[in-house]
């Protein structure tokens, strides 16, 4: 498909079909978000107007003012958990990925195979026993426990992805550093890590989004409403105010907004992680 022939007004039927696909896709994927946003910006009484107003006649932030208190607590909890989880995962997985990339040892392939198997197991499958594990460890209803649990769940994915980035850095760099008298740890810190920062960014972003969105574990482990993450908070909120649609819409928008902003700003990394995480394992 060569480019450059034909002017702007010279669209063939495949161009038109493509535009039609674009139009339908944007309508289907954006409209629900637009609609919830529009719901959140109207006075409570205007939910039941007929005909339906796509853009509200009267725009107000009243709903946001009402949900502000609990929502900021939950947003703060989610941010805190997501940041600490991402730091923890790097501390745990960078050394492991380094070992799988740089050492030859017996059973290495089998362990890697096992990790890949673990990566594919959904948290949903182990949520029931996790309830008793957290009770046994005295970590029930604590952020600390949830963060440790998230690190555990994310070890397989993060180790695999980091290992694939380590593999792209040539061994000669290590050898050169060793000749200069660097220990393995110094080599890792001063030589290897600085050259794989984009890969580390992908790992951080995916872990951040995971912790932010995760529901079933947080729902099971956290009981006090002031400890809720935003996902659990939104769910509890809509259970409590089941027909206050403007409030539910406002709290949903607050849960979505940080992720969409982050995604649009860091799109490149998202797409990298998506394809590399899936295709390379």
């Amino acid at each position: 498909m060569s480019t450059g022939h034909g002017s702007r007004f010279d669209l063939n039927r495949y161009d038109l079909a493509t535009y039609l696909v674009y139009l339908l896709a944007v309508a289907f994927f954006i409209f629900p978000i637009f609609w919830v946003l529009s719901m959140s910006l109207r006075p409570e009484g205007d939910v039941l107007t007929y005909p339906v107003q796509f853009i509200p006649d009267e725009i107000t932030l009243a709903a946001y003012e009402q949900v502000y208190g609990p929502a900021t607590t939950w947003l703060w909890n989610s941010t805190k958990i997501a940041v600490l989880e991402a730091i923890g995962i790097l501390l745990v997985c960078v050394p492991a990925a380094y070992a799988f990339s740089r050492f030859e040892f017996r059973g290495r392939r089998h362990v890697l195979f096992g990790i890949l198997l673990f990566q594919m197991i959904s948290p949903v499958v182990i949520v029931i026993p996790m309830y008793s594990v957290m009770n046994t460890l005295g970590l029930f209803d604590t952020h600390f426990g949830l963060i440790l649990l998230y690190i555990g769940l994310q070890v397989p994915f993060s180790t695999w992805l980091l290992k694939s980035y380590f593999d792209t850095i040539p061994d000669q760099l290590d050898d050169a550093a060793a000749i200069d008298g660097c220990s393995r740890l110094q080599t890792l810190w001063h030589v290897i890590l600085p050259s794989m920062l984009p890969g580390i960014a992908v790992v951080i972003i995916f872990n951040f989004v995971f912790s932010w969105s995760e529901f079933v574990m947080a729902f099971t482990v956290l009981q006090s409403s002031d400890l809720f993450t935003i996902s659990v908070g939104v769910f509890a909120f809509q259970g409590q105010y089941s027909t206050s649609w403007t409030l539910i819409a406002a709290v949903s928008i607050l849960a979505i907004l940080p992720l969409i902003v982050m995604f649009v700003a860091l799109q490149r990394y998202f797409i990298r992680g998506l394809t590399e995480g899936a295709v390379k394992g």
Binding site: F29, I33, M39, S231, W245
Partner: peptide
């Protein structure tokens, strides 16, 4: 072909994917 809107379409589709599952359920309930 250098058509307009390719990137915008891609971002729109991916936006739905970054939203937490629990919120997706609520969005569709609304």
């Amino acid at each position: 072909r250098g058509l307009h809107g390719s990137i915008f379409t891609r971002i729109s589709v991916l936006s739905a994917w970054v939203i937490p599952g629990i919120v997706i359920g609520i969005v569709w309930k609304i």
